[in-house]
Design a protein around this nucleic acid. Structure first.
Lengths: 345, 345
DNA sequence: CTGTTAGCGCGTTCAC
DNA sequence: GTGAACGCGCTAACAG
């Protein structure tokens, strides 16, 4: 049987209360006594039963998740994962509130962070918009001892405790390697379709992609970046025009979120098999396009992992514990039509 | 505050014991009383505090993991993950024993399963060798109410409760798509290097790879399969001979475990940049080769996920609970030099 | 059939 | 400084 606080108390010849004081290094113990207890802890190999401790403490973790509203499939999937975590609240002793905000709106985000602040939660997870005001709000939260984790899109220089998302420069490079190699058999230029250069993850992906193409496939011509604002209608129009303008287009890298327009344009122009298309985020749309061959590869960040990681980190930070950064790193998943995971409910 | 058993007891006008009997549907309750209690449970929205229940029960799960011995890097990594799980034993209430067995040895495995049986664990996880005797041993375990999960390599027809591993046919197909597309720019045949056709995962990968190449890249010539027995020295010799024999070799798919020999042969012959190499399992060797460009892509199964999933499933089965199969599905990871995860400790 | 009571391992008042 | 005693939410004897 595992040793308990009783065993330590007996071994050290003190009472349970004293053992507890030492375990949670609270004041009010003579250093001699403390030593005795600590020695007993080591020799018995005591490990605290966290479940029992939490039961006794009645500990629970109120968290706020600030997520962009709108019909972005990836974000809705992310919200679904947060709701799944809420369903586990009972066993995880968490208590999660979701605060929706308009996408790409720094002012609204500042307001939401202020609302979150007033709820005095133990931690806040936020999909950040890269603006100084937002960084300011995050600093205020942290000054009040509230842990802050950025989700999906980071906010460096805000002093956030952690970023739960992928390395988007590496993601761009990965897309570059795939694009360069997949189009190895044919000539023609490559286009890049972005959402908006105002968000950090899009900028990072572009940077990684461009760098890799320049280094590894210098002979390949890169067309100027097209910005589609993640708007399906606009994207379709732009891609349509692109295809007419560049009849020998070899590939297109869509680093933003509006895949529907891209897919529609490729399918309608009948170019889907000719053009190598690489996109981001596995959604029902991109999944279907992967299956049909319209899209050749999808880079993905696992929203479920991101949410679970954010919660783990918020708990740890709220308790003042350290985090094993390497363990919380979110991977860049590559999906081809052949390794698609089973569709979840 | 969440409702507790006391609240239910009060609301239903019965004692704690009766509530407990209903909750754990034990016999000895009149159906009228049972109804009253169940109504109280629903109206109060009661959710059982699993941690407290386990504390009271003193529940723990003795499990046995049977793993192949030897210097196979992937298997050693797998063992590392099991040891990591052992380190978490305290909080997860598990109690794990590792039983090493010689690799590919059905007789030894039967013996190990029998040893495991005598320990009367709640569950057994085993890297299976595909043989009827082994299936027999698994059946005996299950007949005694011991849950059995196969790990990495499956044993269909043994009645095992679950398989914690990847779909190796899909993995082979994924390798095929990558190979076909990566070699799109050049002619030349493609070789397949296997470990042993006696293990099921290798057979499945070959099947998937061959099928995809035949369907999607029918013009590409596939060389006869080479069997290297996962032995670095033998593999290096065979690959060396292959390269001399086929000077215009375009690609090589290594579906087994002995990557060291492959890497050595490619590097020594100076063909590493010419030949597209795709291998399985991310180890320190394959990682370095990916970095240097000797290997072009690595397909991986996350050993950590597999072990954690195996434990979750064994717990569920031991408690007679259902498993959400889709949630426990292990993904086929694709790694290029650009999306390598940070090296873990 | 049902209720009483004593824990599980730990944290937290209170006295001493 | 230190200790005794009670309670967290639940289960498991044992009575009745």
């Amino acid at each position: 049987m595992r040793p308990t606080v009783h065993d330590i108390a007996a071994k050290a010849g003190v009472s349970l209360a004293t053992v507890d004081r030492v375990l949670n290094n609270r004041p009010g113990v003579r250093s001699v006594t403390r030593d005795k207890v600590e020695r007993a802890i080591v020799t018995l190999g005591y490990v605290r039963d966290v479940a029992a401790a939490n039961l006794a403490k009645g500990r629970n973790y109120p968290f706020v998740f600030i997520l962009p509203a709108g019909d972005n499939s990836f974000m809705r999937g992310l919200e679904g994962e947060v709701r799944a975590a809420m369903a586990r609240s009972a066993s995880e002793r968490t208590q999660i509130t979701i605060l929706p905000v308009p996408a790409f709106d720094a002012q609204a985000l500042v307001q939401a962070l202020s609302d979150a602040h007033q709820r005095r939660p133990a931690g806040v997870a936020v999909v950040a918009v890269d603006a100084p005001e937002v960084a300011g709000s995050v600093k205020q939260l942290r000054a009040d001892g509230i842990a802050v984790v950025t989700l999906v899109s980071d906010l460096p220089g805000s002093g956030r405790d952690h970023f739960a998302g992928v390395d988007n420069i590496a993601a761009g490079r990965t897309a570059g390697t795939l694009m360069g190699r997949f189009t190895g058999g044919r000539a023609g230029p490559i286009a890049v379709l972005a959402g908006s250069m105002l968000v950090r993850d899009h900028r990072d992906r572009l940077e990684g992609f461009t760098a890799l193409m320049t280094e590894e496939f210098p002979a390949r011509r890169l067309l100027p970046v097209i910005e589609g604002q993640d708007d399906p209608v606009l994207v379709e129009k732009l891609v349509h025009a692109l295809i007419e303008r560049e009849p020998d287009l070899a590939g297109i890298y869509s680093l933003g979120a509006g895949n529907r327009g891209l897919i529609a344009a490729l399918d309608k122009t009948g170019k889907s098999k000719m053009v190598c298309a690489i996109a981001h985020e596995l959604t029902s749309h991109s999944r279907a396009a992967l299956r049909s061959g319209t899209i050749d590869a999808v880079l993905n960040q696992d929203a479920g992992h991101e949410v679970r990681s954010a919660i783990r980190v918020l708990k740890a930070k709220a308790d003042g514990l350290a985090v094993i950064e390497a363990q919380e790193r979110i991977r860049i998943d590559i999906f081809l039509k052949d390794n698609l995971p089973i569709e979840q409910a």
